[in-house]
Design a protein around this nucleic acid. Structure first.
Length: 861
RNA sequence: GGGCGGGUAGCUCAGAUUGGUGAGAGCGUCGGCUUUACAAGCCGAAGGUCGUAGGUUCAAAUCCUGCCCCGCCCACCA
């Protein structure tokens, strides 16, 4: 393949993506002598395609998978997809709605067939996208949360917890989504402040007069069973024990006292609706009040609602208000900010609803998970996220695990129709253990999706079977997750690990932010601000997108995303591509180099090797501390600023010289190869491609199987300094040329008052374009100080040297001020007494440098 | 109501753990380059009272306190 001027990733990506997958390159367990390293993939939902958040998440995982593999670990990165109960059921129901059908038209079995069709399609779409992203997963171990292996674990977990007494059934008030017609856990409800109204309603008293209650949801009044006031509220003392009459329904409502009521709010009197409000539910239990449910699962008023029966909840609200007005029972209406709970899957306003559900008792498990955090058995990066984790665990409530859905793991509870016996079994019992009846039915509900995902770290490995996989790869090592599922998933996985296998499922939790658009809104399909990653891959290359998103992601915080920023990575890949083209153009065909550094190295060689060592060390520590934006930055700067801008420019003369070419090529290629390895975890495709094209003998079939680079065993500290002086000198000349519009090929002569070897001047000439050494100039020159060394520069004819003198004068004034400041400091007895010796020494040195500089500038002015 | 994160150049962010280098980078802007790898490039310039008011200190972007903005999480004021 010809190397085009511009990097065209498409073909290259396809080639390697296929190669990696087909060769099963990343299958875990190939070499059991290696230490295992396990990365826990947050399984994407089967609901739709991959989005940019997944790209960031999986890129980070891939970086660690590839890095640890190169460091000699046996990496297991098991890919999975989540069945996403509510979400998937919703999308399939939406599809059905287009055909004018509901799931009830199809029936449970047919509906599930339909869902399975969807799943099969989207599973493939997701797998495809992950492969395209370059994820080095072990595809032979792919799992889906509804497949047999994982379902078995779900049932096992349920039965175990049930038999331990942690799972219980009860009639409680829960969050209910009337659109999805299912329960939601507290975590699945998103709260949002909205402009609402506070209605003041007068309830007539039996003994005459009224008591006014305030409510934001008047329709729930149909289910009122009492009115509550604070025991300390003197206003209502005389009414306690009396009765009010509920308008429309004519129910007698007792007026009672409850600590909970805040006398400051509203009228200080609260209507009590036990079936439709969390607090009222508690009050009712305390006072033994009856429960009156006035809505069905769709949010429609039922027969308890009398004349309002059949109305949708908000229609009922409006009608009730209207009628109250007519009856003169509506005292007033105020604007009021209310916090509404919404379904996290469909944004419908949730309804607190009294129903029979299955709960998992969390207290004990949460305590253990909290302790594991305290003992640092699991660590969060950045560590500030631990606070949130703690906060949730310490205030945990029991988990509603039943869902009134069809798509999911059906609850393994069986009822005997004949004797009401209840059995929790993995397989349907043939007979009732009590009455021997065969008339047995399974619970209709399914389990919360998260009840399967929380087992992911071990259910994917075949738990509850004690097998080799589980023995070897549990507990895992690293979890990379966005912060929004810290509660849903991360904390629960830790609890599950401790509960079922007595150890935390992973040591490190790397938390990253959510992607937002420039208006700080979350990227979402419905807002239309969420670009399709596959489109971006086409436009900017997979590596380009991977690299860009890493560079713009601040550690642990949300990321302001814009398509335009994808250029960062694309341009970087292009730069790498072209640097390679340059090198390769000097390599003769079929020439193979040995990976040995030449004995004699030039100044620039020594510098770039030193720079590489420095870069490697920084990349290592960046990766170890999960500072991924820093890693991207270091790699970018090394390659662009050091390797391309200076090193490659510096060896150009040698490359063109037949006699000196070989050594220059060798060093540059060796550094290039090491750079490719360093960058490979971040940008796997281009590095793989170029690595194969390097004129070295490659033992391995992929760069990803190579070992991670180690530092060159060299120490050229002096040469490094020398080269840095050279860079500064070059910068000075470039600056002068820039300011005075001196064409770059015009000569600017530099005289350095210090012996330099020949190569130094060659490089100066090369890098500053045609500036050359002369003997000490006698006229038309100015003095400068670079890195403490004195140089004389003559400017070409035609340059307004007076202007330059003005510029230098300005600098002199600045310098004088600085020196004055330093002097003040150095004559301050307190400073001399209290500041550390090192600081004083440095200050003195600095002053000395400034003074020397000042002298030089003045001397030649 | 409780808690967390943030406010540094036009924009996006480093620097803050451990106070001491003339406050940095990328993008954007402006000016100059057909320089034989790359215009997705090269060279240069301009641009900052480090949110604000105090305090501690010889010395504060950095530590402490108050305040002001912005974002988020949790919470039973109907």
């Amino acid at each position: 393949m010809e190397l085009g001027k511009t990097y065209n990733p498409r073909e290259i990506e396809e080639k390697w993506q296929k190669f990696w997958v087909e060769k099963n390159l990343y299958q875990a367990g190939k070499d059991k002598s290696k230490k295992p390293f396990v990365i826990m993939m947050p399984p994407p939902n089967v609901t739709g395609t991959l989005h940019m958040g997944h790209v960031l998440n999986n890129t980070l995982q891939d970086i660690y998978a590839r890095y640890m593999r190169m460091k000699g670990y046996d990496v297991l990165w098991l890919p999975g997809v989540d069945h996403a109960g509510i979400a998937t059921q919703n999308v399939v129901e939406k599809e059905l709605a287009k055909e004018g059908k509901t799931r009830f038209d199809l029936g449970r079995e047919k509906f599930l067939e339909r869902v399975n069709e969807w799943v099969e399609k989207y599973e493939e779409i997701i797998k495809f996208a992950l492969k395209r992203l370059g994820c080095s997963c072990d595809w032979s171990k792919y799992r889906f949360t509804m497949d047999e292996i994982m379902s078995k674990a779900v049932l096992e977990a349920f039965v175990k917890l049930y038999k331990k007494g942690l799972i219980y059934r009860g009639k409680y008030i829960v969050n209910f989504c009337p659109r999805c017609e299912t329960t939601l856990s507290d975590e699945e409800v998103e709260r949002e402040e909205t402009n609402g109204k506070l209605y003041y309603i007068k309830y007539p008293l039996i003994k005459g007069g009224f008591i006014t209650v305030a409510t934001t949801r008047p329709e729930t009044m149909l289910g009122d069973v009492a009115v509550a006031v604070n025991p300390d509220d003197k206003r209502y003392k005389n009414l306690v024990g009396e009765y009010a009459i509920l308008p429309f329904i004519k129910r007698k409502l007792i007026i009672l006292e409850d600590e909970f009521v805040d006398p400051e709010f509203g009228t200080g009197a609260v209507k009590v609706t036990p079936s439709h409000d969390f607090i009222d539910f508690e009050i009712a239990k305390r006072h033994n009040l009856p429960f009156v449910t006035v809505m069905d699962t769709k949010g429609i008023i039922n027969e308890e609602g009398g004349e309002f029966k059949g109305l949708e909840r908000f229609e009922a609200r409006n009608l009730i208000i209207e009628k109250l007005k007519k009856l003169d029972l509506l005292e007033k209406v105020e604007d009021y900010k209310i916090i509404l709970g919404k379904c996290y899957r469909c944004e419908t306003i949730i309804e607190p609803y009294l129903s029979e559900q299955w709960f998992l008792s969390m207290r004990e498990m949460a305590k253990k998970a909290y302790e594991a955090g305290e003992k640092e058995e699991v660590k969060f990066y950045p560590p500030s996220w631990k606070k949130l984790y703690d906060q949730w665990l310490l205030n945990i409530k029991d988990w509603v695990i039943s869902r009134q859905l069809w798509w999911g793991h059906r609850i393994p509870i069986y009822y005997c129709k004949d004797c009401d016996n209840l059995m929790a079994e993995i397989q349907k019992p043939l007979r009732c253990e009590k009455c021997n009846s065969q008339n047995i039915v399974q619970d209709e509900d399914v389990l919360d999706t998260w009840f399967s995902s929380w087992l992911f770290p071990f259910s994917t490995l075949g738990w509850p079977d004690r097998n080799e996989l589980l023995e070897r790869y549990y507990p895992g090592s690293l979890l990379v997750s966005a912060w929004d599922i810290l509660y849903f998933w991360v904390a629960r996985m830790i609890m599950a690990g401790l509960e079922f296998l007595e150890s935390v499922p992973f040591r490190d939790v790397l938390i990253h932010g959510l992607l937002r658009d420039e208006k700080r809104r979350k990227l979402s399909k419905s807002l239309g601000n969420s670009p399709d990653p596959l489109d971006l891959f086409d436009k900017y290359g997979v590596d380009g997108v991977r690299f860009s998103i890493l560079s713009i992601a601040p550690e642990g915080r949300d990321i302001i995303f814009s398509v335009d920023k994808m250029k960062i990575g694309r341009n970087f890949c292009n730069k790498i591509w072209n640097a390679f083209r340059l090198l390769l153009s000097y390599v003769e065909e079929n020439k193979v180099f040995k990976r040995e550094l030449p004995y004699e190295l030039e100044l620039e060689d020594k510098w770039i090797l030193m720079k590489f060592n420095e870069t490697l060390n920084r990349v290592n520590s960046g990766l170890e501390s999960y500072d991924y934006p820093e890693v991207a930055k270091i790699i970018y700067q090394f390659f662009w600023l050091n390797y391309c801008d200076f090193y490659l420019e510096a060896i150009k003369d040698r490359l063109k010289d037949i006699k000196r070419k070989e050594k220059a090529l060798k060093v540059s290629l060796i550094v290039f190869e090491n750079f490719l390895k360093l960058a490979h975890p971040l940008i796997p495709f281009i590095t793989e491609e170029l690595w194969h094209r390097l004129p070295f003998k490659q033992e391995k079939e992929s760069i990803s199987l190579e070992s991670w680079p180690c530092v060159f065993d060299i120490n050229f500290e002096k040469e490094k300094e020398e080269f840095e002086f050279l860079i500064e000198t070059v910068n000075l000349i470039r600056e002068l040329k820039g300011i005075y519009n001196i064409p770059s090929n015009e000569k600017v002569n530099v005289f350095i008052k210090e012996k330099k070897d020949k190569r130094f001047f060659e490089l100066l000439q090369l890098l500053a374009k045609s500036s050359t050494l002369e003997v000490e100039p006698t006229e038309n020159f100015l003095g400068y100080v670079v890195n403490g060394k004195e140089l004389l520069v003559t400017l070409p004819m035609g340059v307004n040297i007076e202007k330059e003198k003005q510029r230098i004068k300005k600098e002199i004034i600045e310098l004088k001020n600085l020196i004055k400041d330093l002097e003040r400091k150095l004559t301050n007895p307190e400073f001399l007494e209290k500041a550390p010796e090192e600081v004083i020494r440095k200050t003195e040195e600095k002053k000395k440098i400034f003074v020397e500089k000042l002298n030089t500038l003045t001397k030649y002015l």
